[in-house]
Design a binder for these strands. Structure first.
Length: 502
RNA sequence: GCGAGAGUAGCUCAGUGGUAGAGCACUACCUUGCCAAGGUAGCUGUCGCGGGUUCAAGUCCCGUCUCUCGCUCCA
């Protein structure tokens, strides 16, 4: 059984490895700073990758903003530090962690108490209290204040672990929940997932500023600006595509978990009473979008968050997940963020974020339905989904079956042979198509090889100039997936392709 | 951060202390007339990096960096 799983895992990893290799070979994705041994968790998009990514973002932008009720925005990556206090990131985006030196297990400090029995906790507090009374009067006072406070044992324990000067002393008395070894914990380490930098050239603490860990806050703080400048009324949305940064402890799985990534977010502002309706609408619409661009239906699913696992701001939440070779992974989240964000910004900025509804003559803070898609993750999902190995006449063919609108190159123009005036005719066709779409000209080697090369980068159409072209002005158009050819007049090519790409 | 594995040509990999290799890819020419055909020639390397052992290191030892997997993390 174990062997079967191992083999299965190897096979799954093979697919990712093949895609990573293909990505480098054909210019989709390169490792960042590769000549300097690479930079962990950062990737560069090559000539074909940037086309695919751009097409993906463009499809999203058209779908989300080419409508009456959604406006676009491009907020700065750097924002006022208070934004991240209001959003909860300063408080929640950091987790003190400890390792057991004996068994190497890692624990989150704030949840360590959950793994200790009630009686054990009482005993620990007594031992610690007695010890500190003799050794460290200052800490003893702090400890005693917490012990005497009106709180459950559980809460007191958590509080002690959160109090830096006490935590270390307490940890020395505790046993590792996993292996039972006493006093084997490392000092608590702070994992702050936000990238910190400095505003201005002087590296002073008070100049510290963060690279945004999500694009959403740029939308929230511009809610009133957009509302007042666009003449929108509820319900309406604000959409934004942009980079975000998270200092992940571990990066993983190619583009799936990276430290620098791109988000495509739309925040839809609604009347609180309508939140359920809009949440359901967007949830359905977003899944349909992936399907409409050719993502396999059986590799897509919702993962609804159970009520007890919801983030601090959410009332309802679901992930759209794609079945990657390494398992199901989130590519988009749809959340009902309630009035949490705008209320917090009202509180922290002291600027009213209320909306006045003309019909009901009511003033209130709108609810927000968020659709938050990962551009980098979507890129990878579409790439993995497109990857196919097929057998054609006993030979293996690798083909990326991108939706034509996503394909980096839309059409290749190929003279059947490099003589008899065919290259000249092909060049003419190329120059007529090039202003309208990304095309590729190739006259090198055998025609079959050129078709396969185009299959490997997902080019949906190959236009071939042959002897008959010289006689009657028609060319063949070969379709990537079926490999079937039709013959059309070269004058009709542009119209034909534009129709196919519409 | 811990544990395990890996790093040799653009890609995939062989090379078990004694001259740096193969296939594919790429470039040019010839041939070729619709699905990875053939021929000829050519290009490609601080064997991840640094140190050590040795007459001699891609190979053995130590360190380090990067990648992959697992743990952990992923409000």
């Amino acid at each position: 059984m174990r062997l079967v799983i191992a083999q299965k895992n190897n096979k799954q990893n093979d697919v990712i490895e093949k895609i990573v290799s293909l990505s480098k070979r054909k210019g989709f994705v390169f490792q960042s700073s590769e000549i300097y041994n690479g930079l962990n968790g950062c990737w560069d998009y090559g000539p074909l990758g940037v086309e695919l990514l751009k097409n993906l973002k463009e499809e999203w932008w058209k779908f989300m903003t080419y409508r009456e009720d959604v406006e676009g925005l491009d907020a700065a990556i750097l924002m006022h530090p208070r934004v991240w206090e209001a959003s909860g990131h300063v408080e929640n985006f950091t987790d003190p962690m400890i390792d057991c030196k004996q068994c190497k297990a890692r624990f989150r400090l704030d949840t360590l108490g959950e793994q200790v029995a009630e009686k054990k906790k009482e005993k620990l507090l007594k031992t610690l209290s007695a010890k500190l009374e003799e050794t460290d009067k200052e800490k003893f006072v702090v400890l005693q204040a917490i012990i005497d406070s009106e709180a459950t044992l559980e809460e007191k324990f958590e509080k002690l672990l959160e109090t830096d000067e006490i935590a270390v002393a307490l940890l020395e008395e505790m046993n590792c929940p996993q292996c039972g070894t006493k006093a084997s914990f490392t000092e608590p380490k702070n994992f702050n997932l936000m990238f910190k930098t400095f505003l201005g050239p002087v590296e002073k603490t008070e100049n510290a500023i963060y690279l945004r860990p999500e694009t959403a806050q740029g939308i929230f703080v511009n809610f009133l600006n957009v509302l007042n400048s666009s003449r929108q009324k509820l319900p309406f949305g604000i959409a934004q595509i942009g980079k975000a940064f998270r200092n992940e402890i571990n990066t993983k799985n190619f583009l799936f978990r990276t430290r620098e990534f791109e988000q495509m977010e739309m925040q839809y502002f609604v009347k609180p009473a309508d939140d359920k309706k809009h949440y359901d609408n967007w949830k359905a619409a977003r899944l349909e979008w992936y399907k409409s661009l050719g993502m396999s239906e059986d590799k897509l699913r919702y993962h609804d968050h159970p009520a007890d696992k919801l983030a601090h701001y959410a009332k309802e939440a679901t992930d759209i997940e794609y079945l990657f070779p390494f398992g199901w992974g989130e590519i988009e989240g749809i959340h009902n963020r309630t009035d949490f964000d705008l209320s917090r910004h009202e509180e922290y900025s002291t600027k009213s974020q209320k909306y006045f509804d003309e019909e009901s003559k009511e003033k209130f803070i709108p609810y927000i339905i968020e659709t938050s898609a990962g551009a980098s993750r979507g890129f990878m999902a579409f790439l993995v989904n497109a990857y196919n190995e097929e057998e054609v006449n006993g030979e293996q063919r690798v083909v990326l079956k991108f939706h034509p609108r996503l394909a980096p190159i839309k059409a290749a123009i190929l003279p059947l042979v490099k003589k008899d005036g065919m290259p000249e005719v092909a060049r003419e066709i190329e120059s007529k198509l090039r202003p309208y779409m990304k095309v590729f000209y190739d006259d090198k080697g055998a025609i079959g090889r050129r078709y396969r090369r185009m299959d490997e980068v997902g080019t949906p159409y190959c236009i071939t100039v042959d002897t008959q072209t010289l006689e009657d002005g028609t060319v063949t158009v070969r379709e990537r997936d079926s490999m079937e050819q039709i013959r059309i007049k070269k004058e009709d090519l542009l119209h034909h392709l534009i129709e196919k790409l519409a």
